[in-house]
Design a protein around this nucleic acid. Sequence first.
DNA 1: GCCGTTTTCGGCCCGACTGTTTTCAGTCG
Length: 571
Amino acid sequence: MKNQFVADVLYQIADLLDLKGEIFFKTRAYRTAAQAIEVLDEDIEVVAKEGRLREIPGVGEALAKKIKELIDTGKLEYFEKLKKEIPMGLLNMLKIPGLGPKKVAAVYQHLGVKTIEELRQACLEGKLRTLDGFGETTENNILRGIQLLEKTRGRVLLNVAYEDGMKYIDYLKQCNEIQRLSIAGSLRRMKETIGDIDILASSDNPDKVMDYFVEYSDVQRILLKGSTKTSVVLKDDLQVDLRVVKEESFGSALQYFTGSKEHNVKMRGIAIKQGFKLNEYGLFDKENNEYIVGKDEKEIYNKLGLMYIEPELRENRGEIEMAGKHKLPKLIMYNDVKGDFHVHSNWSDGSESIQTIAEYTQSKGYEYIGIADHSQSLKVARGLSEEKVVKKIKEVEKVNKKLFDFKVLCGTECDIKPDGSLDYSDKVLKLFDFVYAGVHSTFKMTREEMTKRVTKAMENEHVDFLAHPTCRLIGRREPFDLDMEQVIDVAKETNTFLEINAFPDRLDLNDLHARLGKEKGVKFVLGTDAHSLTHLDFMQYGVATARRGWLEKKDVLNTYSLKEIERFLLR
DNA sequence: GCCGTTTTCGGCCCGACTGTTTTCAGTCG
């Protein structure tokens, strides 16, 4: 599958053309095509071979030719030429929030700035303010943007690491020298960003396992190779460490390498207090160094008088104490989810029809699906006018007539205006099966103003869910300043479900806020914010965040049956 | 660069916001 590769090249061409000052519509054409290829559920190589490239929406004569060249030769002359014209470092500069192609081009042309580091220097020296359209504030904004970018540098979003990790695991499963195999580290804990992927295997023949490990086709280079630890870098620059231990140590090694560090420190302290010693090789008697347990994680926790602690909880946030009292929550399971509420159809900015989404999600095993398209003022996302809402509801009714044992719920992701009012009249809001309210613009408000804005929307009787409450975009936009405690209180009073948005760069609410909400008795709804069929699989990252927030099945609306859901929404 | 058709080229999404200006350009969603 070269789909992602082709899409990435097209995205880069679009950026490069932006920097050259090409017209907006041309660069948009590249991006539209790139996105279509990214979510294509077919292998682009097959499509190319069968001469069907132009059937992909957004791919015309010129792009089809370029894509074909790229697939056939692995290269694209046009792209190579552009790269010679424009330093690639400028593409990194585009990632800085608040910096677009025009400004990047200006600092390159007038100051010769080619990298983020040079840009930082130029800002610090006050050189940018000498350029037309730049001032002191711009310099400060850029410096802040660079800082934000660096916070997540070297880390990738959970879904990227997860997909890489699972593919690698599938490959390693074919190695018959391996007895047991697991993901470890922060990926096993399902943290929102991942620095590198840790994999653990048990084997009596570690050298052969390591040989097999480095033969993987996605390996770019080998950093180090030994018989207990080997590290490689994948073609997408993500580092993967494999550790191989003996079968009898698999559980203790898994415990050790899953972390977190803080969790492990505490665990070892407890072991010592009870006359043991805990390390990656097992649980030992402190006095005579005798091996006690270590084959399975569970027996280690139990031997120390603790309940088994799920990986998502291992952050030393009180889970060890609760495990000691046998009071850990019974976490929501990944297969507890019976439906998704936050799905965009092609009525607004999604790529699929309601019918297609319904069929796909039913085949996935869901019982219902909530279509929540954008509201009218969100023109960029082709938000629905009030007239179109009525038409869409009819369409949903039509689709539902064709379905058996499955229901499409017609909702909206209604924009919350700066004054806290909603983008549809109450008369229209009443027509929906459910209403998400969400902020989509004017992010810079004071804490008081934003809290007032959001809570006012929640107080509207038609609003059921609060979408992506803090509007953060991991690595790109800070969460806005919101009095979360007050939002939670109002959610409780108004019976508003708080969303855990499962889209990997949002995961909003985050784990900590979810836990805070649960403690106060608030309920939650999971939504993928899917704009294509592949996005629907992001649900697992929402569940992971819920688990990291200590949520149980009963706390999450999506685990209820259709009948129960309808009761909730009709209240 | 794509698309649709007005069949050979014009339209393609646009308003809010920010920081820079003094009427606007750039960025964002």
